[in-house]
C-alpha cells in the first residue's frame, strides 16, 4: 500500500510541477482538490494515469472525493478494485 501511495504522490508532484506548483509537502491524507495544486485538466490526467497504472476502468459515478480526494483514498480504491472480481 505504501508503494502505491508513493507512486501516486510521485505522479501528483510531477503533474503539479508542470503547473508551476510544488506538491512535495502534500501528505497522504491531504485533500487533493482542496489543495489547489492541480487544476481540473491535471486531475483528469492523474485519473487517466491511475487507470493505466493499476489497469482499472473507473466509472464516471465513482469519480468522487471519497474515492480520489486523497492519496490514501486513491490507494484504498486501487486495493479494493484488486479484490473485486472482474475489475
Amino acid at each position: 500500500m505504501t508503494d502505491t501511495r508513493q507512486k501516486i504522490q510521485h505522479k501528483i508532484v510531477e503533474l503539479a510541477k508542470r503547473q508551476g506548483n510544488d506538491a512535495s509537502s502534500l501528505s497522504f491524507a491531504d485533500s487533493i482538490p482542496d489543495s489547489g495544486i492541480l487544476d481540473s485538466p491535471a486531475l483528469l490526467e492523474l485519473i487517466l494515469w491511475f487507470e493505466n497504472e493499476f489497469d482499472l476502468e473507473i466509472d464516471q459515478d465513482e469519480l468522487t472525493v471519497e474515492n480520489f480526494g486523497t492519496i490514501d483514498a486513491m490507494a484504498s480504491y486501487a486495493a479494493s478494485c484488486g479484490e473485486r472480481p472482474g475489475v
Binding site: P33, D39, S40, L43, L44, L63, T64, V65, E66, G69
Partner: peptide
C-alpha cells in the same frame, strides 16, 4: 455544487 455532489473536479467551466 462540487461540495454537495462530492465531485473531484471543479465544475465551474
Amino acid at each position: 455544487f462540487q461540495k454537495n455532489r462530492r465531485l473531484m473536479l471543479s465544475p465551474l467551466l
